[in-house]
Design a protein around this nucleic acid. Structure first.
Lengths: 234, 234
DNA sequence: TTAATAGTGTCTCTAAGACAGTATCCG
DNA sequence: CGGATACTGTCTTAGAGACACTATTAA
């Protein structure tokens, strides 16, 4: 008997897509209504089975899940982790290769029956398979990576303000940051460039200056270590 | 036709096991002579196909690759990345879930036809499939993680000296570290504890004090940021 | 004007870098 | 003793934290 004559597991790709809504203190994750059994009609991570005769690579499978091509400048996409066991899916041994995406409000992926749900409102029992665990791993990855990189830039639109960027860091890290140290640090790196003022109707105080990410900082994510602001009780 | 009636990829687990030999300026990786076609007899990463009817989880598959149970206190084992495409294996669509292990000289895994090869001497053309790329990803992961954690502890035996630990960091990071800053930092964390002096015959200068890792630091890897020693041309 | 938000200047304090100095082994 | 390696003390320096200050808008 050849090495390959074993029963093969089902292989899926699942996507954890996070975005950050204005005035929200937690991330939102994209869920879709399942169109097939099991758990027909339940909200779950968008995903699909790898089509060996159609997809050339795992990234092809990612692309197929979202109908349109992912624009790599607006998105951040990385492989998260692979979950595999005999019991994570009642249909039999299955492997799910989970991907993590960080998207801005400007470039939310269009997906049928997709909704963004506040991660703070999720409970394990609402979500089928091990998708709750996958989401928790993704949150941990985003938090970890944001503590030493410029990953939170991907939550922001093409142009953004420094207070918006600081807020993205604070939401993801779950702690307040020292404002002057934050600005010194961000501006001290070659990450972003000022694009001047943009008229923003609903603003109360002094209007903030707008910035955009330098192209290099989106491709080669910068190393930025963030530390909590002890004064503000982090 | 059901969602699951597609052709299923072959699913493998491959292991990148690194260790650090004394007096070596680069890591060594465990390779084994392949016992089956393709590439029969060639050195490749140890690995195997997931047995859906025998393994309950991916970790079970890892365990099966090494005949004996992995001792989690001596080993560091983590999932690295999953490689999947139609062309990485001539036998058809395949997925390989790669794991990274860091082991000390004291606890090298016993594996038939296994040899440790200096990673500096590897070239892509020597190594079948995409295993060269997997090894490079593993090296990058070890380097990255060592720059902000105590991962290099796992390269060392149960008791070790501070110069040995510094050398492990320096080899992995590929840069010299400032000795006084290194010692201050390591000793300032609750990572290791002194166990006194141990007689070491072949030593030339002053004998170093021995330490062991605290249990907590092996389970919950500590955060230690290492910076180069500019004086020594890092 | 006040309230609200954006942004700066500067002092303090922590920890990293430099490096000379001391300690303890072997031969 | 000298050479080798291990370790310490301390001055300098870079950068984070604290926080009071100024700037610019809406109402």
């Amino acid at each position: 008997m050849s090495q390959l004559d074993y029963v093969r597991p089902n292989v899926f790709v699942d996507m954890v897509v996070f975005t950050l809504f204005e005035n929200s203190q937690s991330l939102h994750v994209l869920l879709v209504k399942r169109k097939a059994e099991p758990f027909l009609g339940t909200l779950a991570l968008p995903g699909g089975i790898v089509h060996a005769n159609e997809d050339k690579s795992l990234e092809d499978t990612c692309q197929r899940i979202f109908k349109e091509k992912l624009n790599s400048n607006a998105f951040h996409l990385e492989q998260l982790k692979t979950f595999g066991s005999s019991d994570r899916d009642a249909r039999g041994w299955s492997v799910s290769i989970a991907y993590l995406a960080v998207v801005s409000q400007e470039s939310l992926p269009v997906i049928e029956d997709g909704v963004f749900v506040d991660v703070a409102s999720l409970s394990a029992s609402d979500i089928p398979f091990d998708h709750y665990q996958i989401i928790q791993e993704a949150l941990a990855r985003v938090k970890d990576k944001s503590s030493y990189s410029s990953l939170p830039l991907f939550f922001l639109n093409k142009t953004f303000t420094l207070p918006e960027l600081q807020n993205a860091y604070e939401v993801v890290l779950g702690m307040p940051l020292n404002i002057s140290a934050f600005r010194r640090k961000i501006l001290g790196q070659d990450l972003i460039e000022e694009v001047g003022f943009i008229n923003d109707k609903n603003s109360r105080g002094r209007p903030a200056s707008f910035y955009r990410a330098k192209n290099s900082s989106l491709h080669d994510m910068g190393r930025v270590v963030m530390l909590p602001d002890s004064r503000r009780g982090g």
